[in-house]
Design a protein around this nucleic acid. Structure first.
Lengths: 157, 157
DNA sequence: TCAATATACTTCGTATACGAAATAATTGAT
DNA sequence: ATCAATTATTTCGTATACGAAGTATATTGA
């Protein structure tokens, strides 16, 4: 029994993500041969070229363990390259190649257009900034408070 | 209209999903040995036991091609079983086993508690039903091919 | 100085999702 | 009745994400 006043947010976000991701991957894949996650990396590097793996992972919401493979794929596509950091030789500066910049320039209008369509689809009862704020609140809560807020939760066993 | 009210919704939803999914999978995995997607299947079957593969896929937001493996895993865990439909022998009625019902009963309070924490984390500027409605609007828009309407962003809303 | 510890990243095994193509049963038009 | 189109599901190849454990470098503390 799903109560209208008690919607299952987790489930909704999950379904939304699946739908968005499929559509976004298809669009960017067909047009530019990249995934949505890859476009997020490119767009982050636009403002922060030379970012480290960990910083990139944080920015796009992945664990660093997933970043290695992602950067591998993007590097082998020629979109970016790993450059050893001068100051810390464990670390890499991830740097856009000319090809990466070219793809980024082409991805930007697609992403912007996609975003405009989403903002438009939100409906009248909520603004984009309201929705964004809610998402950020949820992310913060889940990432930082998850374990602490679960302190009241006793395992069922 | 180009102020900071232009957040990248796609990216936010993506990050939110990653965080939610990791946390949810960890919680349900440790407590019950199932994934969040598996819990969604169980909960759908609670009200619609005997659903077909395609219906289930629709309900949890997967493509049917992904449903086969998911049901495989759940079947081998003994949570449910495929029963040939009497009326259409291409189709299966996916049915909860006693074990599946047991796990479902244990999952429900965890999911409810998790949802309550999320509702609580939403913040004051938006209600759960508002957020849910926005998600549903977005899902509908994306699934019905909002991408094609992008070229003309004038939309009757 | 140097051993213990922490950090940045990779590798490996596993889980999951998808599209394209295959398989099997049903429906529909002749 | 029959054969082509449709529908439900599976299989296969590929992409991606994660945790645990490993490697290399940096930092800390006595």
């Amino acid at each position: 029994m799903t109560d209208k006043t008690n919607p299952r947010l987790f489930h909704l976000v999950h379904r939304l993500h699946q739908a968005l991701f499929r559509a976004g991957d298809q669009m960017l894949g067909e047009a530019l041969g990249i995934s949505t996650t890859q476009s997020a990396v490119l767009m982050y590097l636009k403002s922060k070229d030379g970012a480290a793996m960990g910083e990139l992972a944080q920015a796009v919401g992945l664990k660093i363990t997933s970043m290695s493979g992602l950067v591998d794929r993007m590097e082998s596509k020629g979109l970016l390259k790993r450059v050893r950091s001068e100051t810390d030789r464990r670390s890499f500066a991830i740097t856009l190649t000319p090809e990466g910049k070219k793809i980024l320039k082409r991805a930007e209008p697609l992403v912007a257009q996609n975003n405009a369509a989403l903002v438009n689809a939100l409906g009248d009862n909520i603004s984009a900034s309201q929705f964004a704020e809610a998402c950020e609140n949820l992310i913060r809560a889940v990432e930082s408070g998850a374990d602490q807020q679960q302190s009241k939760i006793q395992k069922v066993s």
